[in-house]
Amino acid sequence: MSKLQVSLYRYHPETDSAPYMQEFQVDTQGRDLMVLNLLEMIKEDDSTIAYRRSCREGVCGSDGMNMNGKNGLACITPLSAVVKNNKLTLRPLPGLPVIRDLVVDMGLFYKQYERIHPYLQNDTPSPAIERLQSPEERDKLDGLYECILCACCSTACPSFWWNPDKFVGPAGLLQAYRFLADSRDTATRERLSELEDPFSVFRCRGIMNCVAVCPKGLNPTRAIGKIREMLLANAT
């Protein structure tokens, strides 16, 4: 069994003037490890490698990275799903500034998330118990609330690459729709008016890169389409 060829993006702001690729040969002993396990093996020998990780089961969204050209979560991506010709190239999520190695500055991504007011707004007084919601109304939130903010989608989106300061991006828009679709939210009009400019929503060209990479199988493109429909209904 030949060793796996791993090509790893390296950059240390204190010592490197430019990023470079470093090659590693890893003996996986034929096991179909997750990419995160592979990184841990490499880091045992070279502790200077930096990446984020937390839950290691695909729910915290820490270890989004670009594996052989495709964004995904390292902890739930088995080598068998990405390795081609015994070679694996690991890069940080594209389009965001690199802090060190695989760690990117997610500031712009979070800013776009915050911009859509990602919290329930309801101007009626809270009842003594919960607000009632029918199972059918609640079903509308499925496929929306599960987002883990890993940024795999937004950093796979050319519109977000070009205008990360103006285009909300697929992750933020999925959450925008999560609140628009919630029967308990009463700020629909305000939310829509914040989104009708030429950038926030309308930079989406529907190429569905976001859908292709979402590790949770969510569909931001569909949510964006729904927002457009709501904007249209609101304006006509």
């Binding site: 008016s193 030429p198 926030s200 309308f202």
Partner: peptide, 18 residues
């Protein structure tokens, strides 16, 4: 909301519809 004055309708929706 992003405000940008050089587009046509000043609204993404009108541009999109157009």
């Amino acid at each position: 909301m992003v405000t940008n004055i050089t587009n046509l309708g000043r609204s993404g929706l009108s541009d999109w519809l157009l």
